[in-house]
């Protein structure tokens, strides 16, 4: 799995809910959008190591 955050890319073998990944990366789910394999998805969906993740910070401040 490759996780893209802005211009940064990290490799991971995370398995679980997107909301848990968001927390693990120290974001709030109120401030980011998550695309899995290019599509916007609900944060309570489960992902696995085959998925490619893109985290887009859209809410600033706080």
């Amino acid at each position: 799995m490759i996780i893209t955050i802005g211009t940064k890319k990290i490799r991971s073998n995370f398995n679980g809910k997107i909301s848990e990944l968001i927390k693990k990366l120290a974001f709030s789910r109120e401030e980011v959008l998550v695309r899995v394999n290019g599509k916007l998805v609900p944060e309570d969906a489960k992902i696995n190591s085959k998925d490619n993740i893109e985290i887009i910070k859209v809410v600033f401040g706080g």
């Binding site: 109120e30 401030e31 959008l33 887009i56 859209v58 809410v59």
Partner: peptide, 10 residues
């Protein structure tokens, strides 16, 4: 909600 504005834009 603020986040939904970004979702709509996307």
């Amino acid at each position: 909600p603020e986040k939904e504005i970004a979702i709509y834009a996307m």
